[in-house]
Design a protein around this nucleic acid. Structure first.
Lengths: 143, 143
DNA sequence: AGCACGAGTCAGAATAATTCTCGCTTACTC
DNA sequence: GAGTAAGCGAGAATTATTCTGACTCGTGCT
């Protein structure tokens, strides 16, 4: 029952909010654009406007329910925020996104910022590349 | 004489290109938005359209003369590409941007990608925070 | 230097992503 | 169940960027 989550963060429990949260929770793809959420809503038969999707996602972000990422390629993507931090690796060929955490990197970041006299409030580390299924075609045994 | 650089990458030596390259080379701020380059051109008395600035910067990017970064806050910023890679730390309060390189992080990134079966083609690491001049005000000895 | 031609440029239109506006609707309070 | 303010939907507005079409300039040839 997600309505509790909404209440908890001070948001009225409205149909669009519940539905959007539901989609974010049940979608196999963890990272969705506003458009994707919108289309998913339409498919579920919900008549919710794209503007509402953006508004709600932005509210969710402010409330800490979701995180917004700006990967390359135009649109921002949203994912549920479970509280834990992680970075991303994006396949430029198929769009697959995976998450990872690396303590060594996190520590170095802190050290670097410290060194330069900065207090870090956030950071974004995104690796772009091609995943295993797009191996170089002149190798045998390829897809 | 930057015209050589342009020739080298197969771009005709035109006034807009030379002027834009000139601005990128002589501006104190290493990271400029297309708008900033455009305004800088106007100040120099050049009558070059914003669309041209975008086009030229995109060509420069394709040619490897500049790098485009998408920091938070909407507009992309461009910087001359000296060939060396570096990451960025951005002060959210004053907009200052500094660069850094850390071999440990670079190595870990490669290892992580390897581990997940990705071949990295690029990556973006941006630390956001506040720089030394924005220390918490209830500490003595502050700015 | 002069010409031809294709690449380059300009201004403004077009696009894409996202946000805003405003009149209508709904969730929560009593 | 009614009142009220917050929320919603559709489309306009905004912002960043790219495209279009007509005109111009840089470069190679003479």
């Amino acid at each position: 029952m997600e309505s509790k989550d909404l209440r908890k963060v001070g948001l009225k429990v409205t149909l669009p909010r519940v539905k959007i949260l539901d989609i974010l929770e049940n979608n196999t793809d963890l990272h969705m654009t506003a458009e994707e959420v919108y289309r998913s809503l339409l498919e579920s038969g919900e008549d919710i406007g794209l503007a509402t999707v953006y508004r709600v996602l932005t509210q969710f972000e402010a409330a800490g329910l979701v995180k917004r990422h700006n990967f390359e390629g135009g649109s921002a993507v949203f994912e549920l925020d479970d509280g834990g931090h992680h970075d991303h690796i994006v396949c430029l060929e198929c769009g697959r996104v995976e998450e990872f955490v690396d303590e060594v990197i996190e520590d170095r970041q802190k050290a670097i910022a410290d060194n330069l006299g900065y207090k870090i409030s956030d950071h974004s580390l995104i690796l772009y590349g091609s995943c295993a299924r797009h191996e170089c075609p002149h190798k045998e045994g390829d897809d």
